[in-house]
Amino acid sequence: MRTSLDHRSRAQESSRARPGIAAAAAIAVTLGLVGCAPSPSAAPTATPVPTLPSGVTVELAQLRADVAPRQAQLRVVNGSDAAITVGEVRVEDPRLDGPATRVVPDRVSTIPAGGSVDIRVQLPPVACSTPDGGDSEAVLELVGESGSAEVTASAPDALGFLAPLHARECLQERMADAATLAFTGFRPSAPGEPATLELTVTPTGAGAGTVVGLERTNLLDFAGTPAEDEVFHVDIDVSAAQAAPVVVEIPLVPFRCDPHAVQEDKRGTIFDVRIELDGEPGEFELFVGDELRGHILTWVAGWCGFAG
């Protein structure tokens, strides 16, 4: 009797185990893992593989909405014939001072065969000691029922954003040796009147440079500035002898008054700042910050008459 029960029990356990084993085997093939499927009592294991499954590609891009928060998108395209699951990701580039990692750290992305996903990553500070050049690599954790494996692949910069980002932010870092720049206040205005945006230039007392001016954005213009003038000039010369902050009041009016300009705003509150350092011109981007951005967009909506 015991022999018959034992035989039936083993048969039931085998029947229950078959779907899990089949799924684990499929994942093992997808990940390129080798060896036998582990027994139910064994700890999950995985052997790292050097490349992505055939047909899977990655690329790096920065969209307009990613600029202000200094983020980017790692697009993973699954051209294979099986679904893949991606856990942790790292984007490594010699122009970055550390890896770019998921904005939502614990998220897992399952990509069906023939599908794609954009994984948002947070960019670290740039590495200005590194020359402008190099290639990005993506390290992805591929997850399966039997374990996980890290794979490394080239991640081309699809839109060519990283080199200009590196150049701008390194220029801003050099300028910061002489002075820091920040938008520090905003006073809204009634329709038809200019609002005021405050730019504060704070010398460090340790360097020299010139803040030439600001360029208009796709949302904001400068009151009283001719349309043919590309720059609102402030012309602040900073020297090593200075220490007191300089506050510049910038008169603003909306550049456009269609509602979707506010509703779909991505870069309307990011200004290009023109400077000169060591006799050479340059420019970098300066964001007003999330709080002032909210105030400015609310003002534009009221000024243009489509608030509420």
Rank of each mutant, 00 (worst) to 15 (best):
S9W: 14
S9F: 14
R10E: 12
R10N: 11
R10W: 08
S14D: 13
A22Q: 13
A23C: 06
V29Q: 13
C36M: 14
A37Y: 13
T51M: 12
E59H: 14
L60N: 04
A61W: 08
Q62A: 10
R64D: 11
V67N: 05
P69S: 02
R75L: 04
P94I: 00
R95W: 04
D97A: 14
D97Y: 08
D97Q: 14
G98K: 08
T101E: 15
D106M: 07
V108C: 10
S109F: 15
S116V: 08
V117E: 13
D118L: 14
R120Q: 12
L123M: 10
V126T: 13
V126W: 06
V126Y: 09
A127I: 05
G133W: 12
G134A: 07
E137M: 10
V139N: 09
A158H: 09
A158L: 12
A167L: 12
A167M: 10
E173R: 12
A179W: 04
L181E: 05
F183A: 01
F186V: 03
P191G: 02
E198G: 03
V201C: 04
P203A: 04
T204F: 02
A206Y: 07
A208D: 08
G209M: 01
G209D: 03
P226V: 02
V231N: 01
V247A: 09
F255E: 15
Q263L: 12
E264I: 10
D265Y: 06
K266Q: 15
R267T: 14
G268K: 11
D278H: 08
G279A: 06
G279I: 06
E285S: 15
L286T: 01
F287R: 08
I296T: 03
V300C: 05
G302R: 13
F306H: 03
